[in-house]
Amino acid sequence: MGVEPSKGAVSLAATKTMTQRDEVRKRILMRAGEIFADRGFQSATVREICQRAEVNVAAVNYYFGDKECLYIDAVKDARELIASRWPLPEWTRETSTEQKLLMFVTTFLQRLLNTDPSNWRMKLLLREILEPSRACEEIIQESFRPFFGVLLDIIREAVGPNVSEHQLHQTGFSVISQCVFYLANRRVVGIMVTPAEREQHFQTEMLAKHITQFSFLGMKNSRSLPEPNPTSETS
């Protein structure tokens, strides 16, 4: 009879196997993210992903379920890594509403603009913003909705408790849109603005101050604005 392996040896072997599986899964995720970022979900193929990751074509189904689940995991990985690098700052009771808005906008701009645009994670997130897929729905529910909720609380604090739900959302989307503009239109800004002006006025800190001042002034003034009446369609 052969000698049975000890429990310690079995445990070590199991740990090694799990580590190897984690490494393979991570390698597939990284290579898939690069291809998805360059070509989008529809144009990317499982065969190419597996070739670049140096795994069998069945590995995608084994580790992720299917191509769509792999794509969703790649987008989540991109968002989580960038968000963890620039987490939302914490404020105290003494922090003013305008300062909270500045801290929020600064963090969001850092996530958008301070990541190397050639990085596949940033390219993939930008593609997802401009061409939303089913992955976008999950990210909105799990990540963006809580993040957006922080902004809505700041707006409610600035405008007052009587602000309507649709005005709250419109104002929040306006703030977010100003930030996303500078990511989606890097080349446009680069063409229209001189290098000297970009260096002096279009760095993250200066953009955050501008967006905050512009938005906060609008929030304060909106208290005195009448509620717009919806226009009815005319035949």
Rank of each mutant, 00 (worst) to 15 (best):
E131S: 13
I176N: 09
L124K: 01
L125S: 03
R186C: 06
E165Q: 11
R134F: 15
Q167K: 08
I176V: 05
L126K: 10
V159Y: 02
L151Q: 02
C179W: 04
L113F: 12
L109N: 00
S133Q: 12
K123Y: 05
C179P: 07
Q110D: 08
S133P: 05
R156T: 04
E128Y: 02
R145V: 03
I139Q: 01
S143R: 07
L126E: 10
H166V: 15
N185R: 15
L113M: 13
R127W: 03
D116N: 15
A158W: 00
D153G: 06
T107L: 06
E131D: 12
S177R: 13
W120M: 08
T171I: 14
N119G: 09
K123H: 04
S118D: 15
E157A: 07
F144I: 04
I139Y: 00
C179V: 05
Q178E: 13
L126I: 07
N119V: 08
F147G: 00
N185D: 14
A135S: 11
G190T: 08
E157K: 00
E131F: 12
Q110Y: 12
N114L: 15
C179H: 03
I191M: 08
D153I: 02
T115N: 14
L151D: 02
I176H: 09
F181E: 10
T115K: 12
D153F: 05
F108L: 09
I139E: 01
E142A: 08
Q110K: 12
L183W: 07
V163T: 01
P117N: 13
S174Q: 10
M122S: 13
V159P: 00
S143F: 11
H166P: 06
F173D: 11
Q170M: 15
V175D: 03
L168M: 06
